[in-house]
Lab assay of single mutants.
Amino acid sequence: SLSVDNKKFWATVESSEHSFEVPIYAETLDEALELAEWQYVPAGFEVTRVRPCVAP
């Protein structure tokens, strides 16, 4: 099958004044980091952490 098993990760994104967490959907932690950097670094943010979303 061609289905992709995307998992939810939380990326911590920082600017000079703010820090916030955004959801990233990817297959692996490395891919989540790449996606977060691709989305947020060009906008002037720094991705400081990516972690798996742990269900309660």
Rank of each mutant, 00 (worst) to 15 (best):
E14D: 05
F45E: 02
V54S: 12
L33K: 13
L35E: 04
T12F: 05
D30G: 10
P42E: 07
E46P: 01
S1F: 10
T28H: 05
W38L: 13
T12A: 04
Q39R: 08
A26R: 02
H18T: 07
S3Q: 13
E37N: 09
E14I: 12
S16Q: 11
A43T: 04
V54T: 12
H18K: 11
P42V: 07
V50F: 02
Q39A: 09
E46W: 14
E46T: 14
V22L: 04
P52K: 05
R51E: 12
L33S: 05
V13L: 08
V54N: 13
P42L: 07
K8R: 08
S15A: 05
F20D: 01
V22Q: 02
N6S: 13
F9C: 14
E37A: 11
Q39G: 05
F20E: 02
A11C: 10
W38I: 13
S15T: 08
V22P: 00
R51T: 10
A55P: 12
S1I: 11
L2A: 09
L2I: 12
D5Q: 14
V22F: 05
I24V: 06
W38K: 15
D30Y: 10
D5K: 15
W10F: 06
V47W: 04
T48Y: 02
W10N: 01
R51P: 01
V41Q: 09
P52E: 15
S1P: 11
E34S: 13
F9E: 00
W10K: 04
S3G: 12
V54A: 13
V41G: 15
T12S: 05
R49P: 04
A55R: 10
L2E: 10
Q39C: 15
G44W: 03
L35T: 07
C53N: 08
E46Q: 14
A26C: 06
E37S: 12
V13S: 02
E31Y: 05
S19I: 12
E31T: 05
I24K: 00
T12D: 02
D30P: 05
A32L: 03
E46R: 14
P42T: 10
W10Q: 02
D5H: 04
E17N: 10
W38P: 03
V50R: 00
P23E: 13
E17R: 08
S3W: 09
F9M: 00
C53E: 13
E14R: 09
V47M: 00
D30C: 12
E34C: 10
T28D: 06
T28P: 01
E31D: 06
V50D: 02
V4T: 13
Y40A: 04
S15W: 06
P56T: 12
V50C: 00
N6L: 14
E34V: 12
L29M: 10
K8Y: 13
A11V: 15
K7S: 06
S3D: 10
E34M: 15
C53I: 04
W38F: 13
V47L: 04
W10C: 15
D30M: 11
E34L: 13
T12Y: 08
D30R: 14
F20A: 04
S19Q: 07
L33W: 15
S16V: 08
E21W: 05
P42Y: 07
A55H: 13
E37G: 05
I24R: 00
E14Y: 08
A55G: 12
E27C: 06
E14G: 06
V22N: 03
V22E: 01
A43N: 09
L2S: 10
P23H: 07
L33T: 09
V41H: 11
V41M: 07
P42N: 07
V22I: 08
E14S: 10
P42R: 08
D30T: 12
D30E: 15
G44S: 00
D5T: 15
F9N: 01
F20H: 03
V4Q: 09
E21D: 10
A36K: 00
P52F: 09
V47N: 02
Y25L: 04
Q39N: 06
Y25V: 04
V41C: 06
E21H: 07
K7D: 01
A36H: 01
E37Q: 14
R49C: 13
T28M: 03
A26P: 02
P42I: 07
A55K: 11
D30A: 14
T28E: 02
C53V: 09
T12R: 08
K8C: 15
A36Q: 03
N6Y: 15
P56I: 11
F9K: 00
W38M: 15
F45N: 02
A32D: 00
T28Y: 03
D30L: 11
D5G: 15
D30N: 10
P52W: 10
L29Q: 07
V54W: 12
S3L: 07
R51W: 13
P23W: 09
K7F: 11
E17P: 00
A26H: 03
S3K: 10
S15F: 07
E17D: 12
A11M: 04
E14P: 01
T48Q: 04
